[in-house]
Amino acid sequence: MSTLNVWVLSADTQSERRIDPHISVEQLKNKLELITGVPVANQAISILNSLEDRTLVVALNDDARPLGYYGLRDWHVLKVEDTNPSTSFTGQLTDVSQTEKFELSEEQYASRTDTVLAYKQRNKVGRFAPKSEADEAPVEDVKIPVGSRCEIESNEPGLSKRGTVRFVGPTQFGTGGGVWVGVEYDEPMGKNDGSVNGVRYFTCLPNYGAFVRPAKVVVGDFPVLDLEDEEEI
C-alpha cells in the first residue's frame, strides 16, 4: 500500500487527495496548511467515516504517530478544524450571513439608467422593439368595465378572491399577447402593487394587486366580505 485516496474537508475547502499513510501527523499538517489555509499550530484533525457518513472514527492527537497507526483507509475524510479562526479568518470567505444585501424595488430599478432594462428601452430591443401592423395581434374585445366589482376564480376550493377591476388591456409582460385584467384585491392575496417589471398599470398597496386572464374574472355585485359573512366553524 503506497498511497490512499482520501477527502480533505475544512471550513473553506473540500478536495480529493492522495496521502502516504506512512507520514506522521505533523508532516500531514504541513501539507494540509497549503491545502486548507489553516496554520499548522491551529489544526485539529479527525478522521470521519466518509462524506456520506460523517461518523467520527478517531482524532489525530499525537503528531509523532504515522497515519497508518490510526487506521486511515481509502475514502476516509480528514476533517481539519481551525482552533483559532480569528487569526486566520477561516470560514469568513464563505460566510455571507453578515454581508449587507443590495436590493432595489421595481420602481428604483426602472428609474436607473445603467441596467439591462434601460439598455433595452434605449435600443428598442426585445419587447421594446417597434412592431409593424402585421405583427400586432388583434386585441380581443373584453367587456369588463374598469371600476367594477369582481370575483376571481381560485385554484383553492372554497376560497373567494374579491376585488375591484383597475386595468383591462394588453401588457408588456407574459407570452402570447392578449388582454389581462388588473385587479385590486380586498385582501393581500396578490403578487404586486399594480406594476410588473417596472411598468405601472394601476396603483394599489403591495400584495393587493394581481393580473389574471379575463376568463377567470366574474363581474357582479360582490361586496367586501366581512367576518360576519363567513360560516361558523
Score class of each variant (00 low, 15 high):
2 S>E: 14
3 T>F: 12
4 L>R: 14
8 V>I: 11
8 V>Y: 04
9 L>V: 08
14 Q>L: 14
19 I>A: 08
23 I>K: 02
23 I>H: 05
29 K>V: 03
30 N>W: 11
33 E>H: 12
33 E>D: 10
34 L>A: 13
36 T>M: 07
39 P>N: 10
41 A>E: 13
46 S>V: 06
48 L>D: 05
51 L>S: 07
52 E>M: 08
52 E>V: 02
52 E>G: 09
54 R>Q: 14
58 V>G: 01
60 L>D: 03
60 L>E: 02
61 N>V: 09
61 N>T: 11
62 D>K: 13
63 D>A: 12
68 G>Q: 10
68 G>H: 11
68 G>V: 04
69 Y>A: 14
69 Y>Q: 06
70 Y>T: 06
70 Y>K: 10
71 G>D: 04
74 D>P: 00
74 D>H: 07
75 W>Y: 07
75 W>M: 08
76 H>D: 07
88 S>F: 01
89 F>Q: 09
90 T>A: 15
90 T>V: 04
91 G>L: 09
95 D>E: 10
95 D>H: 10
97 S>D: 11
102 F>R: 15
102 F>K: 13
103 E>L: 14
106 E>M: 09
110 A>E: 12
115 T>G: 04
117 L>C: 06
118 A>V: 07
119 Y>T: 15
122 R>A: 11
122 R>V: 11
123 N>E: 14
123 N>M: 12
124 K>R: 15
126 G>R: 10
126 G>I: 09
127 R>H: 08
129 A>S: 14
133 E>A: 15
134 A>M: 09
135 D>P: 00
137 A>N: 12
137 A>S: 12
138 P>A: 14
143 K>H: 12
144 I>W: 05
146 V>H: 06
146 V>D: 05
152 I>E: 00
156 E>W: 00
156 E>L: 09
156 E>I: 11
159 L>K: 12
159 L>C: 04
159 L>A: 06
162 R>W: 04
163 G>N: 00
163 G>Q: 02
164 T>S: 07
169 G>E: 10
173 F>Q: 05
173 F>L: 03
173 F>V: 01
175 T>S: 13
180 W>Q: 13
182 G>R: 03
182 G>V: 04
185 Y>N: 02
185 Y>K: 02
187 E>M: 07
189 M>G: 01
190 G>A: 05
192 N>D: 11
195 S>V: 00
195 S>A: 09
196 V>Q: 05
197 N>D: 15
198 G>D: 07
201 Y>Q: 08
203 T>Q: 13
205 L>P: 01
208 Y>G: 04
208 Y>H: 15
208 Y>N: 02
208 Y>Q: 03
209 G>E: 02
209 G>V: 04
212 V>F: 14
212 V>D: 03
219 V>F: 03
223 P>N: 05
224 V>K: 15
224 V>H: 11
225 L>W: 03
226 D>H: 14
228 E>Q: 13
228 E>M: 08
230 E>A: 12
